[in-house]
Amino acid sequence: MKKEDRLEKNPIEEYLRMDRIPHIWCPGCGIGTVVTSFIEALKKNKEDLDKVAVVSGIGCTGRVAGYVKMDSFHTTHGRAVPFATGLKLANPDMKVVVFSGDGDIFGIGGNHFIHAARRNMDILIICVNNFNYAMTGGQVAATTPMTANASTAPYGNYEYSFSLPYLADACGATYVARWTALHMRRVTKSIQEALNHRGLSLIEVITPCVTLYARRNRLGDGLNLLKYYYDQSVIEHGADTRTLDIAYQGKLVCGKFIDKEKPTFLDAMNTHLSNVLGDDYELYGRINNEND
């Protein structure tokens, strides 16, 4: 059946590269849910898709860039954030979104994240956290809760894990939220807000990895994991980010924790150099930024 013959169309088709569908994600995976939320947010915000770019690294979530129909970049492992930094600085009127996984952004790319947050670089980072390195077969990650099993932690993980919102807050991020794949509408709303936020935004979305994390830990299927999210997630907007650790199958504190204004990298550069150099300074990108 040809595409145009179909009676029903997916309402987000025009935002996707339909010539690349079906996607590679497993049944029960939560990444597609987050992509749907992202696209809903773009629709609700009436974003000009010509001015939105998606940058991904490597991994399961790294494949998002390949499926969304806007300027999209599938880069190297861990380097999506500095790539996005270059893209944003070269083209300040664009909204640059990093869409990648926990291993990519906070494992191999951790150093880049902390510095982008420190600079309050005006990019949105959507981090899909599935608690393990899924693309390579379920290895232990910087986000794997203690005692959980992984293919390279076959007797259980004994390393402390990162609390992503705490890290982001400490490093200077100006919008920080955490949700699970169960909270689709709240994820959408957070992305809507973050798209309009000037500065570095981090939205962590905890998602089921059925094939690896759940199977290896005998946690059941996607539905069981959503049930876990339902039972154990609590919404505490503005919670102290020091209290957001995630224990194995433990409480998942969700909500918007940080939403504050602070000059972005380019704002600070323009303001400071204008003050110091006066008329000798060539303003950079400000005209475009005023449209935001």
Binding site: R79, P82, T85, L89, A90, F265
Partner: peptide
């Protein structure tokens, strides 16, 4: 600053190169 453009000191050379590629696709 006198010419119009961006200088950014990145966190390492991995980041510098990634930023260059991003900036190039941004038209610089």
């Amino acid at each position: 600053p006198h010419v119009g453009g961006v200088f950014i000191q990145m966190e390492d050379e991995l980041a510098s190169m990634a930023a260059l590629i991003g900036a190039s696709w941004g038209g610089k």
